[in-house]
Design a protein around this nucleic acid. Structure first.
Length: 688
DNA sequence: GACTTCACG
DNA sequence: ACGTACGTGAAGTCC
């Protein structure tokens, strides 16, 4: 029941507060002068007690005022009622199970001692299947919790959670099998509003108008629970250590955990229809949600790292770095920090004056990137040494030195984090460590791939790559007959392009021509410009223009496709992949030509890169099912490649199954075939 | 924390 | 006249 002491005062202050608030829809009808009780009630229901008090408190804190009348009056408003229960008896547990087993949808949220998925203990699990109602089960008090709950997790109910990858990882490490379907409110919100924040607190406030208790607040000790809310806000930065939830009294934690589960379920109820309205449900239901357990599995498997290989490569790099530093400093005439682009720029262009007018970066420093330096190589021997130093130094610090620190204590393997919807195109991203940018292009860099090995004797690494996937996607989306024909006849696409562009027979294509054609093909995917191409190929812009013109004459449908994408983004505001994944471009109609051109290139690239991402994600889901119950495991995804720890006994059987799953994950339009290259070996280098 | 550079697809 | 290839993450410097 909502009550308030001084209606007039309350409404005035509420209006002030709410005008700054993100939820404004209900304010349109809000009569500021004389709000009636009904309107206030509506607002209060939307915002709830804690959200309001938080805002008022912040306001008061900023102005360093005494406790305001509004503050006092709000204390008299009762919270929107909820029923959060600590499961401390068999009766209560039975009640939970009865309720959840009958529910088509329920939400759960695990509480742990740490955010590290491999070094945290399970403390408790909260459940909710109805708004404003939730249960919290403390693991400590239920030694046989697995037997009690396993059927629930294996049920076919829709499992809702926020950042489910974490919860699934924790439960999986406990040996609990959790069956889908899943609905992750974080993923859902990322699809619905990619530019906003997706943390639960942000969502609770922006979507539900509700401000949940912060976990950090539970650590502040207080004699009077009533004052916690206000005391903790004042000292919110006081405690920022380990968030070990097992240190919190169970009754307190129960309220927090239950609230999270409750809020998450309420978020699901809001987000599911939004997703449906935008036509994004199938992306979540058919691709991203099924991918969750696959990523959990990949991350938990990890990959073996052979330290002796790293040591060998590291030693070589070390001596290269030492020799080169000495040579460079002697050529420069004085010692300086080789790792500082600023200092290097001053040496090369300030002191040595290698060029008339050196290129500058945005902030006015001398440019010293590889492209700039490579052009200066003939001018002075120091340049070649600097480039070699840069390469060695990069390999040493980013890979040789850093990778071993990521070895997990429990497995001695490397477990990357995959970010499912971080990118704007739909690709995965990998971090801590990033295993999607392990060197392969340079000879020295390649050697590092020998350090990534099969898990044990009897296993091999299998690399399965999509061949030219983005060009195939572009051929399919554009429907260009010439490019489609090249793929259907399994021709080398760059040679074929060179032959067309130069008007010669494929047999007459010289390596240089093929190289140019390859750059053009890539350039097209990136939303080509004559300037960009001329830079990469080191040719005059006029020449680049000619090549592009000839390209579009040979592949007219590709030119049309590019225009159509830009046109539809101008009209609808977004580009989409074959599966309907969207990316919005608000700058597509910018008055600034540069900004607009950037948006246009990104818009052209999006459906291509994004469709390829859709395809491999679907393939991963399919392959994960195929591998169920087998020794072989999927262990990595690198955009167009999947890496497996393959048991030798399963090789003959699995290779065709994996190939089929990848080839047919997403059927491309216009009969464009999809091709897979396979390779095996004891390490990642050999597997290619 | 911004900036620069460079590893990958 | 302007200033671009698309998408990422990490390490190092420097303020």
């Amino acid at each position: 029941m909502i009550q308030f002491a001084d209606q007039a005062l309350l409404s005035k202050n509420l209006a002030t507060i709410l005008l700054d608030a993100p939820i404004t829809e209900s304010l349109d009808d809000f009569e500021l002068q004389d709000p009636n009780e009904e309107q206030l009630r509506e607002l209060l229901e939307k915002w709830e007690f804690r959200t309001l008090t938080k805002r008022i408190f912040q306001d008061q804190e900023e102005q360093q005022q005494e406790e305001s009348p509004i503050f006092k009056s709000l204390k008299t408003i009762s919270e929107v009622s909820h029923d959060y229960r600590l499961i401390d008896s068999e009766e209560c547990l039975t009640e939970l199970l009865d309720e959840l087993q009958g529910a088509k949808v329920f939400c759960f949220d695990v509480e742990t001692t740490s955010l590290d998925r491999f070094q945290s203990d399970l403390v408790g699990i909260a459940f909710s299947s109805k708004a404003h109602e939730a249960y919290y089960l403390p693991i400590e008090r239920w030694p046989h919790w697995k037997e009690k709950l396993s059927a629930l997790f294996e049920s076919s109910s829709l499992k809702v959670g926020h950042n489910l990858k974490f919860d699934l990882a924790i439960l999986s490490s406990q040996g609990i099998r959790v069956n889908g379907p899943f609905f992750d409110t974080m993923l859902a919100h990322t699809l619905v509003a990619p530019d906003q924040k997706h943390g639960m607190d942000a969502l609770a406030e922006n979507i539900l108008g509700y401000c949940p208790i912060k976990l950090t607040d539970l650590f502040t000790q207080s004699e009077q629970p009533d004052d916690d809310l206000f005391a903790s806000a004042a000292q919110k930065k006081a405690t920022k250590g380990e968030l070990d939830t097992s240190q919190i009294p169970v009754e307190k934690l129960a309220q927090y955990a239950a609230e999270d589960a409750d809020v998450t379920l309420q978020l699901y109820e809001k987000l599911a229809p939004q997703l449906e309205e935008l036509g994004l449900s199938s992306i979540l239901n058919e691709i991203e949600a099924p991918l969750l357990p696959v990523l959990v599995s990949i991350e938990s498997e990890g990959i073996s790292l052979d330290q002796s290989v790293l040591d060998d490569v590291g030693e070589k790099l070390e001596s290269t770095i030492k020799t080169l530093s000495e040579q460079i400093e002697s050529l420069a005439g004085r010692p300086f920090n080789l790792n500082s682009p600023k200092q290097l720029g001053e040496i090369l262009f300030g002191e040595m004056q290698l060029v008339e007018k050196p290129k500058k970066t945005k902030s006015g420093q001398f440019k010293t990137d590889e492209q700039t330096l490579a052009a200066l190589a003939p001018k002075h021997p120091i340049i070649a040494n600097i480039l070699k130093y840069r390469e060695a130094s990069k390999l040493k610090s980013t890979y040789v030195d850093a990778l071993p620190n990521h070895r997990a204590p429990h497995s001695q393997r490397i477990h990357t984090h995959f970010h499912q919807l971080l990118t704007s195109t739909g690709r995965l991203a990998s971090s801590d460590p990033n295993l999607q940018n392990i060197p392969v292009r340079s000879e020295m860099g390649k050697e590092l791939r020998r350090a990534f090995t099969a898990r044990a004797d009897g296993f091999l690494l299998l690399a399965a790559d999509y061949s030219q996937i983005e060009l195939r996607v572009m051929a399919a989306l554009s429907g260009d007959p010439a490019m489609i024909e090249a793929f259907q006849n399994n021709h080398d696409i760059h040679t074929s392009t060179a032959a067309k562009v130069y008007g010669i027979d494929p047999s007459e294509v010289l390596p240089e021509m093929r190289r140019t054609a390859k750059m053009v093909n890539f350039g097209i995917i990136y939303g080509i410009s004559a300037f960009g191409l001329s830079q990469r190929l080191n040719i005059p812009r006029s020449e680049a223009s000619e090549v592009i013109k000839s390209y579009f004459e040979q592949y007219p449908a590709i030119a049309e496709f590019m225009e159509e994408v830009v046109e539809s983004v101008r009209k609808d505001g977004y580009a989409q992949t074959l599966s309907g994944r969207r990316r919005y471009f608000k700058e597509i109609n910018s008055g600034n030509a540069t900004v607009r051109a950037n948006a246009e290139r990104a818009a052209i690239n999006s459906p291509i890169q994004g469709t390829a991402a859709d395809m491999i994600k679907i393939a991963m889901v399919r392959i994960h099912k195929i591998l169920e119950g087998r020794k072989s495991k999927m262990i990595l995804q690198v955009h167009d490649e999947l890496l497996f720890d393959l048991h030798e006994s399963e090789e003959a059987q699995l290779l065709p199954l994996i190939t089929e799953a990848m080839e047919n994950a997403l059927v491309l339009p216009n009969q464009v075939p999809v091709k897979i290259d396979l390779g095996t070996g004891k390490n990642w280098l050999q597997a290619h």
